[in-house]
Amino acid sequence: MPHEEPSGGIDRRDLLAGAGLLAAISLAPPVQAQPVAPAAPLRDEAWLALNPGEAALLGALVDRLIPADALGPSASEAGVVVFIDRQLAGAWGAGARLYRSGPFRRGKAEQGYQLPLTPREYFSAGLAALDPWARGRFGAPLERLSGEQCDAALHALEKGEADLGGIDPRGFFEALLAITVEGFFADPLYGGNRGKAGWKLLGYPGLPATYAQAVKTRKGRPYAQAPHSIEDFL
């Protein structure tokens, strides 16, 4: 048998060129932030993964998790439903990096997620189960409940006091809270955190290239700079 080089072999010169060590490049922060588009109403969104009912239901839920107040916009006003839709439509929503071989068994909580569902399928199943449960419990679909009733529904999920069929209500609540927080604080590139609302809430300045001076000059004093996102650097 002839000896062969495997196709995984790579050209040494490509790597040498790529791996050249560059001295630290200081990327100057932009002079001013890009103007911020106002939050668009949900009905104007074209959904990639959600159906309109799911989008409306999510909007009602996430706006109780992060409501509008004097500190800033609600989760949906900051684009969190758009963020969730795009996440579910993309590779993560389709189960990228998720081990999906069976058998699928119900384990201990400490063994983590064990369902065969991708995140997109999981949210779809959870929202579908939520609607009949809420109608039974409150006499109306969730998106038509008062704020207090919606909070009561969320508390019931959080405590595991809801019947969502095969979906553990606590697990569904934690997944919903996690993706809401992600959408509120992730770089605006992903459709949430509109106007950097999440970053402004915290006082997080986004991603200046360097704090080499600030680490010395801002000890004990607020940094107090308007936040910059990935897009602002392009």
Binding site: L21, L22, A23, A24, S26, L207, P208, A209, T210, Y211, A212, A214, V215
Partner: peptide, 10 residues
């Protein structure tokens, strides 16, 4: 190999 100085970017 040359290493640059840390920028404390977090």
């Amino acid at each position: 190999a040359r290493l640059g100085a840390c920028t404390y970017c977090g």
